[in-house]
C-alpha cells in the first residue's frame, strides 16, 4: 500500500460523464470545462483551460500549482466573483451564476471588516440573510466557540493576531453553512509555526462540520497534510496535470515515509513545470 492512487484527469472526467449513475447530493460540485481568458486591448491571456473536476460532499481538495498559474482564478470562478469565458459550475444539480452564500470564501489577507467586532464579523452573512437577531447571535456564538475565540468575541479585528484573524475568517465563512468553502491560501500570511497550528485546528473544526473544502495553497506540505485529493496544475494556462488521492489516516505524520514520498513526488512534478518556464 503506497497510499497513492494516481488517476489521470481525463480518465476521471470520462468516468464522471460516463453515466456512472450517482445521486447528486447538495454539496456535490461538478466543474465542467471551465475556461477563463483575460482580455486587454493589446493581449489575451488564457488563465485557465479545460478545467473539470467533480467533488463529493465533505471532501477536502487542495489545488497546488506553480506560482502565478491561476489558482486564485479557479476559486473566484467557482465563487462567482469572476465570470468564466466558458464552462459551468454546478452545485447540487444547479448551475451557479454569480456569487451566493452557498459558496463561502476565506481570503489570504483575511478580508475581515475592521469596523466590526469579531462577533459582528461572524454575524455578517446572517445579517445579510435577514436572520433574526437572537438566532444570529446564537449561531455566531457557536462558530466562535468552534474556532476557539469565545474570549475574543467582542474584540476588534486589529487587536487579534494573524492566526486569530484567520480563525474569524473561517468562522465567518462556516456560519452561513455553505455547501462549499473556498479557501484562498488562507494560511499564506502566517508564520510557519502558526501555520501548522492552524492546519491542525482547521481539521478539528472540519470534524465538527460537514462542509466541502476547496483549498488553494502553494505549500505542498500543507496540501499533503490536509487533503483527500490534491489537484496539481500546470503552469499558465493552468490545466489539471494530475490528481493525487491521499488516503493516509489523520492526523498525518509529516515525518512518515508515505508523507514525505508523496510530498517529494508532487514537488518534482511542480519543479518540472517551473523548469519548463
Amino acid at each position: 500500500m503506497t497510499g497513492i492512487k494516481k488517476t489521470q484527469a481525463k480518465d476521471r472526467l470520462r468516468d464522471a460523464l460516463g453515466g456512472k449513475q450517482r445521486q447528486t447530493l447538495s454539496g456535490d460540485i461538478k466543474i465542467e470545462n471551465l475556461r477563463k481568458v483575460y482580455r486587454t486591448d493589446e493581449s489575451e491571456t488564457v488563465a485557465l483551460e479545460d478545467f473539470s473536476l467533480e467533488i463529493k460532499k465533505g471532501e477536502l481538495i487542495t489545488i497546488v500549482g506553480p506560482s502565478g498559474c491561476g489558482k486564485t482564478t479557479i476559486l473566484k470562478l467557482i465563487a462567482g466573483l469572476v465570470e468564466p469565458t466558458s464552462g459551468t459550475v454546478t452545485i447540487g444539480g444547479e448551475v451557479c451564476e454569480g456569487p451566493g452564500p452557498d459558496r463561502g470564501m476565506v481570503f489570504q489577507d483575511f478580508a475581515l471588516f475592521p469596523w466590526r467586532s469579531v462577533r459582528k464579523n461572524v454575524e455578517f452573512g446572517l445579517e445579510i440573510a435577514g436572520v433574526p437577531k437572537e438566532e444570529r447571535r446564537e449561531r455566531a456564538q457557536r462558530y466562535i466557540e468552534i474556532v476557539g475565540l469565545e474570549k475574543f468575541a467582542d474584540a476588534r479585528v486589529h487587536e487579534l493576531s494573524g492566526g486569530m484573524k484567520q480563525r474569524v475568517g473561517i468562522a465567518r465563512a462556516l456560519v452561513n453553512r455553505p455547501d462549499i468553502i473556498l479557501m484562498d491560501e488562507p494560511f499564506g500570511a502566517l508564520d510557519a509555526q502558526t501555520r501548522n497550528i492552524m492546519q491542525g485546528s482547521l481539521l478539528r473544526i472540519l470534524e465538527k462540520t460537514d462542509q466541502t473544502i476547496l483549498f488553494v495553497t502553494h505549500s505542498v506540505d500543507e496540501a499533503v497534510y490536509l487533503s483527500d485529493r490534491i489537484v496539481v496544475l500546470t503552469k499558465r494556462p493552468a490545466r489539471i496535470k494530475e490528481i493525487v488521492e491521499i488516503d493516509l489516516p489523520r492526523p498525518r505524520d509529516r515525518a512518515s515515509v508515505e508523507f514525505t514520498s508523496i510530498r517529494k513526488r508532487i514537488l518534482e512534478e511542480l519543479e518540472k513545470e517551473n523548469v519548463m518556464e
Partner: peptide, 28 residues
Amino acid sequence: DPNWIDAAKTMGATRVQVFTKVMFPAAV
C-alpha cells in the same frame, strides 16, 4: 479593499447591501 466587497458578495450581499454594509462604513 476589493476583498471586502468580494467577501460580502460570497456571503450573499446584494449590490445595495454591499453599498450600505461595506462601502459606506469603509469610507467613514
